[in-house]
Design a protein around this nucleic acid. Sequence first.
RNA 1: GCCCCGAUAGUGUAGCGGCCUAUCAUACGAGCCUGUCGAGCUCGUGACACGGGUCCAAAUCCCGUUCGGGGCGCCA
Length: 429
Amino acid sequence: MHRTYIGQISDKKDGDEVHLFGWVQEVRKLKKLSFIVLRDHTGNIQITIKPENVSTYDEITNVNRESVLSVIGHVSLNSGAKSGVEITAKEVEVLNSSEAPLPLAIFEGIQSDFETRLNNRSLDLREPSHNLIFRIESSLLWGIRKYMHEQGFQEVHTPKIVASATEGGANLFRVKYFERDVFLNQSPQLYKEMLMASGMDKVFEVGPAFRAEEHNTVRHLNEFTSIDIEMSFCDHNEVMKILEESVNSGLRVVFERFGDEVKKINPDLKIQTIPFPRVTYRECIYLLSKEGVEAKFGEDFSPEQLRLIGRHFPGFYFITEWPSEVRAFYTMPKPGDPDVTNSFDLQYGQWELTSGAQRVHDPKMLENRLIEKGLNPEDFNFHLNAFRYGMPPHAGWAIGLERLTMILLNLPNIREVCLFPRDRTRVVP
RNA sequence: GCCCCGAUAGUGUAGCGGCCUAUCAUACGAGCCUGUCGAGCUCGUGACACGGGUCCAAAUCCCGUUCGGGGCGCCA
């Protein structure tokens, strides 16, 4: 007999025999019979165990919570069960017993500290609401991937071990690589641009990015999953369109699969009409000044300033035309207005989700931009070489998967959206 | 890196100078019990992060350490 998932029992008829596998959520032991609530990742169900039917009765009814069981029994639709359906057990086997007591509270109406939960993450993830986050994240990513394939993007994988530590901006983790030191890549940026020179035209990558920054906030991780795209023969406007549509594609899959659950978690979430609003950096400064908050041109917005701006744009919106000072060397200056760039951030309220831009494709200009940023073009030869023999104009963006999931589900901490988060102090489990 | 806050049974908490041989819930153990379903009832088990100080007296006040939380900064 094949395994039946608990979620499939609703399709069964009274008396159907099923073989279930799962974890013991609760044992209710009475004098003449016992009940076990069995759980798998699709739901839970009450199992009725009577001593006259089940030879392992004593062992089963004394089993610790969260032990793993195999249960063969038949579906009872008209039993006394409050939920309407239960399984009358015929054969029950303990596949593996759990130790007691458990190191954290699950299914007890007690919220353990997040630290306790992370220290016991596998157990913590048995809690359906915690588990759900990752099934939603997976669906979101699938929707984005699906859209990318539909648009003719090719999924690629670029190295995470890199030689250069001088890309500017974020700090990199140094690691041993045989007889020398190398670094964990902070982004696939340079590599995906090099692929534009290969003629691949449209690429995307989903992979880890590492940032050796000592930030200690609820929205930063030192290792996160970056969704990157790069596209040839286009400017920033075209990749913004791709971004809007891919986010909506991800959301559509989430709503198809988890619509009811998502509505409970974040009732405000909906699929937003395209195009998302666009506001320039300069307009944001003006908006802030009207509220009596001074923002200096050429500086990033502080969290407080972003909260104020976010109040004007409740859902997704783009902040465009960032000053060159706050954008990376490869960002294309705006023609005729070189103080700003052909760049954008996708925001959701106060939260920054994506950075993107049209890139510089002229090698001479790129070299000058490196020098302007105080970087040494020598260190970027491997990258500049790709620009010398016919680099097409191109643009792209990167979005943090955890950030996106976090803000869509309105979760208070990015670590909730990461299975095994890496932050300033945590590298275990 | 800076600022603020915290650390009490397995878990989550109350207590914030003597009333603490420390509260409650849950868990765990033993028993009772009704087809139970947040099961119920009885009994039991189990904790003041570490080091120093103040005081007649410290879980409680002070100092330091460690660990943790939040905000800011940093952050292609």
